[in-house]
Design a protein around this nucleic acid. Sequence first.
DNA 1: CAACTCAGTATTGTTAACAATCTTTGTCAA
DNA 2: TTGACAAAGATTGTTAACAATACTGAGTTG
Lengths: 251, 251
Amino acid sequence: MIVTKRALKDSIVHSSPQLSSENETKVSTDPDEKAIVGRIYKAVMEQRLAPNTKLSEARLCETFGVGRMRVRRALLLLSSQGIIDLHSNRGAYVACPDKSEANDVFEARMLLEPPMVKRLAVAPCDKSLALLSDHIALENAAREKNERTEVIRLSGEFHVKLAQAIGNEVVLQMMRELVTRTSLIVGLFGSSNNASCPDDEHAKILNAIQTSDPELAVQLVTSHLAHIQSGLDMDRRTRPHDDLATILGPA
Amino acid sequence: MIVTKRALKDSIVHSSPQLSSENETKVSTDPDEKAIVGRIYKAVMEQRLAPNTKLSEARLCETFGVGRMRVRRALLLLSSQGIIDLHSNRGAYVACPDKSEANDVFEARMLLEPPMVKRLAVAPCDKSLALLSDHIALENAAREKNERTEVIRLSGEFHVKLAQAIGNEVVLQMMRELVTRTSLIVGLFGSSNNASCPDDEHAKILNAIQTSDPELAVQLVTSHLAHIQSGLDMDRRTRPHDDLATILGPA
DNA sequence: CAACTCAGTATTGTTAACAATCTTTGTCAA
DNA sequence: TTGACAAAGATTGTTAACAATACTGAGTTG
């Protein structure tokens, strides 16, 4: 409670320069629930909203300058997508996936993403390649500038871009959800530094798509996902920021 | 409007005998939004709720015996899953997918389901086989008894059971959504009698899984989906019940 | 000193009234 | 008859007050 007072607001409201344009249209029109959901999605993907963080209605209201109703609608949407948990009479908390849920998310990605890149590699179109290529450029730029949160977010978003490259709204939505939930999982079970990790694996995948090598692309994305998953320690979960004991130490 | 007055209530509230038990627990506890969502899901899957049907809040309130708030929450959830469309100030309408959306849904299923059955066939476990086998028995029984709506629903639900057999909650949720949206699509673009269609294709798929033949299973499910899709006429869409012109004829 | 009780406070859940918007109906004129 | 226009009605969107529940902390007791 003491820590999150100001930190929570920052973690949501603070937006990186190039992204503020994609969410906010010129004037600050009061955001609808979709905008609120988007903001929280972004905060989770940048791992600024730790699992189990409480999202009180009042706080969100003042953060977004919106009535309670909009906030509640947004929270309901987020909960239906597994990003937050809604406890009756106790409020909304950033989701804190357990081992089983984490496995489910990874398994779902293991099922879905290989066919995706396979399809991309079979018939790569210029627009898709440009989209992915541009994104990787962004990743590299952020990495060089040591922008940690940006690197993390872009690293996850690459996989969303894969769905976008296919040009399928339904798949895109599914991937957005899966990737965001993965951010929570990595935040919980990740072993310190490997939060972003992929380095040039994304570039290799793109290359396989470019050269129209479906089998290689599938193999690369599969091992990429396995790599991420293997970097997790499913048993020793890092305690969520919420309980102060771990922050302040055992003394 | 005239037609739906009584028909709407029936199409939602009326529940087939063996399913009422799975949604309602003993006493009629006033249903939360999750129950409402489930009921509407079922009605859509049985194709009793035609696309573009208006779901007015007042009607739903009295149908479910629930306050307006619950109904609105349910509608929001349904809209976030593409089952209904929410038009500002105009209300909620059962979704009416266009050609592009329909293709996206089928493409998503084409991406997701083959890997699913592949995984099932690689390591079939008894519980999964029993689940699927029992379901096919239900399908056959319903077909023999000529219970049209039941056949339609079970026919779609088989694919949900595939996800359930994998034992992955995330995949299960995705499949539920995809299958339900498919029901809407088939209702819109389907050529009369092929609404349910598969006959014994489901059994064949199960058999491939049982005999641990992944390649065959993948091939069967792929052609099964292609078969369903080919039965659609994407251009000559059957007009939704809403506009009376098609009901009363051109005269 | 630990654990428990019990008000007081804060937060969430619900309801009902109000405001805004759309739809329909009825009227009038061309 | 048809079209436009305006008022009435119905439906949705929003707000605010109230109710119910959970949390907090002081005080008490073992």
